[in-house]
Design a protein around this nucleic acid. Structure first.
Lengths: 230, 230
DNA sequence: ATATGGCATATTGTATACCAAATGTCAAAC
DNA sequence: GTTTGACATTTGGTATACAATATGCCATAT
């Protein structure tokens, strides 16, 4: 299952045309998210140019984009380093993500269609299946898709783009945390609450549960971070 | 009073060194915010290069940055056009901004210092002074500074950066709205409520008032937009 | 008159070479 | 041991060339 599973299903109307710099930034973003480029690593322009077989111009445009997304930091005359957020920053981001999802929940309760609820329920069952099999990767990705589905149901472009950006910055650490934490399936019951609140279209409840959900995410993530940090 | 009034007061310790692409993106951002580049306008690389006396490479890097901030749209092979958000998008952004400020208010109540409250109160009086004089520009900028002060008091980098980005996209339209709307001073009483809630450190109240404040901002902005749209 | 197709022109996308400035390293001098 | 300075490396920026695409125009066909 790839990150862009939708491509298998959705019929894209237009032919997608990406500039080279977009392709590069997408590729680098994936490499960062998947930890092929680790936090603190320095990006050497020449090396990446050789590796991806592109010239410096589009690569540097891609770096600018990633920098403004917060995935890398551009130090003048020192080049680009992969961002290495500390626990405080992670906690901060997760809190804001919680606020965004809480708002998404509010709106979703008013705007979600029965079809979307059914789809989320299906994803929920798939996630339970992955959990039963001990399939951590599948579990994690389905978890992500459920949250994305709720954001989508909120029908707010601004919300979606902010969530996407923030999520990209958190993806790696959440993934690592999911792989390592003993309690990797502990969100199952919270997800039941989320689904229940959505089905009742109880905005206040869904909002509250989602924000709480991100708080407990922080607890799990911090546990793993502290352990790694010796 | 310039946008960066602080420079007059604050002693900057280090010498700030910005890369050329940063300087360019800052300049273009200001030009967009101040309506020197109007929504829908197309940016011709060569023209801007001549105007700013820079080469294409750093200019294009700057454009990438602005595009990822949502201030311009980059259409492959067609160049850059200044974003022209429609009323629905504006409403959407203002709602999310309201959510962010509400959260900032919550945190600020817990973290704000007495000094900061005093400063916000001072800004409030300055704003009242500007209102009394009919100084719309001064009123608007002080209004912005008050909100920024609340965000700052919340002590969340993520929140600050998201707020800054969203605010940049909204700045122009809010400024125009402030200039033209009959009710340009109607936020004065809301600001009294905001300050009161902050002084009481009443998180729930401040959060609610701030979100409501952005809702009434939308009412004023939409009024002006509708009028302009014929 | 409208529509189609093709051509010329303008603009963007990418590659490359080059230079200046900044950084890091390492050895010599004190 | 610390400082100084020369050197190699890397990045920031410019200039330029060329390819790909978009745009506008005109002639032709219907």
């Amino acid at each position: 299952m790839s990150l862009d599973t939708e491509l298998d299903i959705k019929q894209t109307k237009e032919i997608v045309r990406l500039t080279l710099s977009e392709q590069i930034s997408n590729r680098l973003r994936d490499m960062i998210i998947q930890n092929q480029l680790a936090p603190g690593d320095r990006i050497r322009e020449r090396d990446i140019c050789l590796e991806l077989q592109v010239s410096r111009t589009p690569l540097r445009e891609a770096l600018q984009k990633l920098a403004s997304e917060g995935l890398i930091e551009l130090v003048p005359n020192c080049g680009a380093v992969i961002s290495a957020p500390n626990p405080e920053e992670i906690a901060d981001m997760l809190q804001v993500l919680g606020v965004l999802e809480a708002f998404a929940g509010e709106r979703a309760c008013a705007l979600v269609t029965q079809e979307e609820i059914n789809e989320i329920k299906a994803l929920q069952y798939e996630m339970l299946a992955a959990f039963a099999r001990g399939d951590r990767l599948g579990y994690f990705k389905l978890n992500q898709r459920i949250h994305l589905a709720i954001i989508t149901a909120a029908r707010s472009e601004t919300l979606l783009s902010m969530h996407t950006r923030l999520n990209a910055r958190l993806y790696r650490i959440r993934y690592q945390s999911n792989l390592r934490n003993e309690l990797w399936g502990s969100a199952v019951s919270e997800h039941n609450d989320i689904l229940a609140a959505l089905e009742e279209r109880n905005a206040e409840k869904l909002s509250r549960v989602l924000r709480q959900h991100l708080r407990s995410t922080w607890e799990k993530v911090s546990e793993v971070m502290m352990a790694e940090d010796h």
